[in-house]
Every structure is written in C-alpha cells, then in structure tokens.
Amino acid sequence: MHPFTYTRVSDTREALNAGRGGGRYIAGGTTLVDLMRETVEQPETLVDISGLPLREITVAEHGALRIGALVRMAEAAAHPKVRVLYPVISEALELSASAQLRNMATIGGNIMQRTRCTYFRDVTADCNKREPGSGCAALHGFNRSHAILGTSDHCVSTHPSDVAVAFAALEARVHLLGPDGERQVPFADFLLRPGSTPDREQALRRGELITAVEIPALPRPLKSGYLKVRDRQSYEFALTSAAVALHVRGGVIREARIAAGGVGTVPWKLPEVEQQLIGERPSESLWASAAAKAADGARALQHNRFKVELLKRTVERQLRIVGGTK
C-alpha cells in the first residue's frame, strides 16, 4: 500500500474543500482499502466522510424513498419502510457480500464500487480501466464472469453491485453535492458504459459527493423482488440477476420496472422487456415471451456464452416469482 495522508471531516463544506483539493473520499472503505492494498488505487489523501450527517432514510410523499449516502447496507436492508415499500432493494442488499461487509459498506460506496474483473485487480495485467491504453486482457482471456451487454473493445468488465441493479430498475436518482452546489442525476446516467474511456466510471465532477439515492414514488400496489444466480449459494457475485417491480391493477400490468445484473458493464435496464408487459395480463406465456427479449443486443465472449440463455431464464423466473400467473 502506498503511503497517504488522512483527514477526517465533520461537515460537507469541509469535505468538499478537501475533495476539491484532490482528496479521495472514504466511507465504508471495503472496496477502496482492498484495492489500495493491491496498489490498484493509490490515493495520496484519504478524506474520511463517515462522520457526515448523511445517514438517514426518509419517506417522502406517495412512497418516494430517500436513502442517505452513508446509510450502511445492513441498515438500509433492515429498514422497515424499505422492506415494505421496496423488497427488491432489501433483497438485493441481503444477497450481497457478507454480514460483516454489509455492516461496513455504505449505499453511496456501493454504487461507487469498482469491478471485480481479475485483470483490473492484477496490476501486472493489461487493463484499460486501470491503465488507459494498455489494452484489455479480459477480451481474449478468462472472461467467464464478464459482461455480454454494454461492452466495448476497450472493456468488458461488469459492475458488481446488486443494489445498483434495483436502483436502475426503479429509475432512482443520485443526489450530488459539489463545489457548484447540488444536482441530481438519473441513475441511468450516473454509471457510465466503458466506450473508449473505461477509466471514467461515474458522471461525477471533481470533488463531488453523493449525498443520497432517491427512489421515486411508484403506483401501488407494487410487488417487487430480486433474484441472484451465482456459482455458490451465498457470499458470491452474480453471474446473472434480475430486479423486477410490477404494478398490477384490475388484472392488468400497468407498470413494469426491470433491470439485470452480472451481465452488463453497468446495471442493465430492460425497457424492451418492460414494454412487452405493459397492458398485458400475467401469464406463463407472457413471462416467457417478454423475457426472451432480455438478452437482445448481447455480445458473448469465449467463456460467457452461457450468460445469454441464463439471463433470459433468470428474468423469466423472477417475473413469475413477482408477478405470479393470475
């Protein structure tokens, strides 16, 4: 690990000053400390923001939910309102990492976490994300866990978060605070596809701080849930996953919010699948025909072809679990 200076801040103004000066924010630190030890990350200054007052969960009108950036994963998952209003969020969180890590990691840090691509983590390997211009060792390497959607010739790594898949499905908004004031960014625009600049991962400006993630109100009743498929039953990243939220009234699907994880360079929203469902009555054949669209545009690599079919089946199964057949 490279040496770094450490400073603890107690209010956002102090944090922004330190951030503007090039300091790196640290919250839970579960990704950052790990990557610093591997020398993938080499911050010169760590700005400890864990003392900032961003640890509240509030319910706004009509069931919109605002989760403070420093709320721990475990706290968000256990929060009664989150469990009742958005089971998809609490399920995604509780299927992530381990109990220990969920006690440490924060919501803001979770969506900032970096890829688990083994070549990214190995400083001797070529990786455009870690070292722009060096190449992508995963493209023709061992790429079983890599992405099939949103990839480029420069990067094929997945975004590892589960709850980010739920946030993408629910069309969350990321609240940011920077030297120029507050702004909000739709979740779909917050995490960036690699394109030719895979080292640029978020739509953050220098020194900007995530203050909260807001889930907009959705019509009720809303059923939702998260399904995660992986190599072992617990404490493992997704091969594929599906976040599904459905509003069914009068026997007809009025709203659908669906995204997939483990398959995209960013959490992968599935608007075509959503469109197939709107105005239809739940049925086995509807789930199958809608899920058949889930892997549209997929570009499989040598070792991850199985993900194309697995993704469709994951989405179909989760539609059935959430939507039933009546």
Partner: peptide, 15 residues
Amino acid sequence: GQRHNACLTLAVRLE
C-alpha cells in the same frame, strides 16, 4: 457491537 472485517478497517478511522 457489530461484526466487521478487521483487515479492511483502517486503524486511524477508529477514534
């Protein structure tokens, strides 16, 4: 009172 991984916890943060 909560379980954490000590290996990922920087000691300087434990004031």
